[in-house]
């Protein structure tokens, strides 16, 4: 196999992103990645040739392909377009057959074990030490969202990050309100207080908040259940492959589809509030679920670097799409940083 030096890998990442932009909305495409060429007419045997791989759900051949190209031009991947993608690149394009089902475990998509220190973890139960991806909520209210992760303020105080509508959710709930892990909906409450609401980000039009860990609280570690530690923060980018660990849908993957973020009005507590810096995330595989109720507060991470790029807060199931606020804006608004230890 040819040596995959950093230049080739950099080219590969760039090309995968270009291809993602081009084919994101093509329902024939099930996955785009960079890997070894797959001989799908020879029992899917791998060769030693690295390629940009555009996995297709169906592959008409010969005369059928010509008919398909004429009848469905919007679904057809033209040779000219594909050649343009890898022009001046030291690799070619491969179009393997691949109709992946939701929840299928494929290579790098395999999550880490749902365990902390070797002990199995259920996201909606009490977890010790605490980490990103588990249930959290306001101890007074019957609800639950996701503990996004560990951050520190400018004084070095340890805090947990989530959405305002998860940690507070009512206009009359102010700083100092008790935060429970798990959330009350999952059996938590005033007997499970681990932190106290410290600040929200509404002045910056962001549905985000932090809670300062209570004295003697369970430990909070920089880790995302089934993903691993967060390595920093970065701005979302179109075509970026992202992943999150959420209380309801667990580990899911997506692709950032926004080029420029938008803003929307939410009614978190019955009052209209504008939320800005919103990035849309589509499922990586057509038909996959990206998020569900209870995932609010999850951190979306760049799947390649595990840098936090977004804070999940809303979604829709038809078409499946998640909405996240850009993480740099969230951290700036709350004057906190990702805790790397």
């Amino acid at each position: 196999m040819p040596e995959l030096n950093s230049t080739i890998l950099s080219d590969a990442r760039h090309t995968v992103r270009q291809a993602t932009r081009l084919y994101l909305s093509n329902p024939r495409v099930s996955l785009i990645d960079f890997g070894l060429r797959i001989r799908d007419q020879q029992e899917s045997r791998l060769t030693d040739e690295p390629c940009l791989r555009i996995h297709l759900r169906n592959k008409p051949r010969g005369e059928q392909l010509e008919i398909f190209a004429a009848e469905s031009p919007s679904l057809y991947l033209s040779d000219e377009e594909l050649r343009g993608l890898v022009r001046d690149r030291p690799f070619e394009v491969d179009l393997p057959l691949g109709d992946y089902r939701p929840n299928e475990v494929v290579g790098a998509r395999t999550p880490l074990p749902a365990a902390v220190g070797g002990a199995p973890v259920r996201r909606e139960r009490l977890v010790d030490p605490m980490l990103g991806g588990v249930s959290v909520g306001n101890a007074w209210l019957a609800g639950a969202g996701t503990l996004g992760g560990k951050v520190i303020d400018r004084r070095g105080d340890q805090m947990l990050l989530s959405n305002w509508h998860v940690l507070a959710g009512r206009w009359w709930i102010g700083n100092g309100a008790p935060i429970s892990q798990p959330g009350r909906l999952d059996g938590g409450g005033t007997g499970f207080v681990v932190a106290y609401l410290a600040q929200d980000a509404w002045r910056s039009r962001l549905d985000a908040a932090v809670a300062r860990l209570a004295v003697g609280s369970r430990q909070l570690v920089n880790d995302q259940l089934e993903i691993g530690a967060v390595t920093g923060a970065a701005t979302p980018a179109p075509g970026m492959r992202v992943t999150k660990s959420g209380r309801t849908t667990g580990v899911t993957w997506g692709i950032v589809s926004s080029i420029l973020p938008g803003r929307m009005i939410t009614y978190a507590d019955g009052f209209p509030r504008v939320v800005r810096d919103i990035w849309a995330i589509e499922p990586e595989l057509v038909g996959d679920r990206v998020s569900g109720r209870g995932d609010s507060g999850s951190m979306w991470l760049d799947a390649d670097t595990r840098r936090a790029v977004g804070l999940h807060f809303a979604g829709d199931s038809d078409p499946p799409r998640a909405l996240a606020m850009g993480m740099p804006a969230v951290l700036d608004a709350l004057a906190v940083d990702i805790a790397l230890r």
Partner: peptide, 19 residues
Amino acid sequence: VSLIDVAFQREPGSPSGSV
């Protein structure tokens, strides 16, 4: 309207995505 953003859209027959 719930949200307005900017994205790539590939039009049928077009060789590349447009903003």
